[in-house]
Amino acid sequence: MLRNIPPILSPELLYTLRAMGHGDELVIGDANFPAESIGPTALRLDGIPATQLLEAVLTLMPLDAFVDSPAHVMQVVGDPDAVPEIVQKFQEIIDTTADIPARIASLERFDFYDRARTAFAVVQTGETRLYGNIILTKGVIAP
């Protein structure tokens, strides 16, 4: 056991977060996300909601302050201006937990998948709410 580390973060995920460098991206995917087939290393946290994982990750990982949008979600197919409840919750978590304020940007579904293919890793959660996917860009920890 370690202190001050959210217990839902598995040893594999802690290793992954530590191994990531500035500008690397992490995908938090819902239960429907094609984590295994998308390409990068896939980790599983079945039974954990994406919102709970986002909050835990942001307690350890800084968001990138050098890009316009260090967080991206998938647009609703057929209604790109819609903001699902889970995306609103993601924004609230970023507003209250992240080290820098950041507005979430959205990507068309297949653009989201293309970006996810180049991520450092994908964490598939047990999230059942649709569009419960987010890509985070890791920042730096200042000296």
Results as ranks from 00 to 15, higher is better:
Pro80His: 05
Met1Pro: 14
Tyr113Ala: 03
Arg18Gly: 09
Lys89Ile: 15
Glu25Pro: 02
Val123Asn: 08
Gln91Ala: 11
Pro101Ile: 08
Leu53Thr: 05
Glu92Lys: 01
Ile141Glu: 06
Gln52Phe: 09
Leu13His: 01
Phe90Asn: 06
Val122Gly: 04
Pro49Ile: 13
Leu45Gln: 09
Leu63Phe: 05
Ile135Asp: 02
Gly47Leu: 06
Val57Glu: 03
Leu58Val: 05
Asp99Gly: 13
Thr51Asp: 11
Leu43Ala: 08
Ala56Phe: 00
Gln52Ser: 12
Pro40Val: 11
Arg129Pro: 03
Val123Phe: 07
Ala121Leu: 08
Gly78Val: 07
Gly139Met: 10
Arg103Pro: 09
Pro84Val: 13
Leu60Asp: 02
Asp24Phe: 02
Leu45Gly: 09
Val122Pro: 00
Ala98Leu: 06
Asp99Thr: 15
Leu107His: 07
Ala42Asp: 10
Arg3Asn: 05
Ile38Gly: 07
His72Arg: 03
Ile93His: 01
Ile38Cys: 03
His72Glu: 08
Asp111Cys: 05
Ile100Asn: 11
Asn4Val: 00
Val73Glu: 00
Phe110Pro: 08
Asp99Met: 15
Phe112Pro: 09
Lys138Phe: 08
Tyr15Ile: 04
Met61Val: 05
Ile93Asp: 00
Arg117Asn: 01
Leu63Pro: 08
Thr96Phe: 04
Ile94Ser: 05
Leu136Tyr: 00
Thr118Lys: 15
Thr41Trp: 06
Pro84Leu: 15
Ile104Phe: 09
Arg103Val: 13
Leu14Met: 01
Ala82Ser: 14
Ser69Asn: 14
Tyr113Cys: 12
Phe66Asn: 14
Met74Trp: 01
Lys138Ile: 11
Phe66Tyr: 13
Arg129Ala: 15
Thr96Val: 01
Pro6Val: 01
Phe90Gln: 15
Asp46Ala: 14
Met20Tyr: 01
Pro62Leu: 10
Asp46Gly: 13
Gly23Ile: 11
Gln52Ile: 04
Glu85Lys: 14
Pro84Gln: 12
Pro34His: 09
Ile8Arg: 12
Ala31Asn: 12
Leu26Asp: 01
Gln75Met: 13
Arg115Lys: 14
Gly78Trp: 02
Pro101Tyr: 12
Ala56Cys: 03
Asp64Val: 12
Glu55Lys: 13
Pro70Phe: 07
Ala31Asp: 15
Ala35Asn: 06
Ala142Ile: 15
Val73Lys: 02
Val67Asn: 05
Leu60Ala: 00
Arg18Glu: 13
Lys89Ser: 10
Arg129Lys: 09
Ser106Asp: 07
Leu54Pro: 02
His22Asp: 06
Pro6His: 04
Val73Trp: 03
Gly23Asn: 08
Ser69Tyr: 14
Ala65Phe: 07
Glu12His: 00
Ala65Glu: 13
Arg44Phe: 15
Phe90Leu: 14
Asn32Lys: 14
Ala71Ser: 12
Ala42Asn: 07
Met1Lys: 13
Asp64Ile: 12
Phe33Tyr: 10
Leu54Gly: 10
Arg115Gly: 00
Asp30Arg: 09
Leu136Phe: 03
Asp114Thr: 07
Arg44Ser: 15
Gln75Tyr: 02
Val67Ser: 08
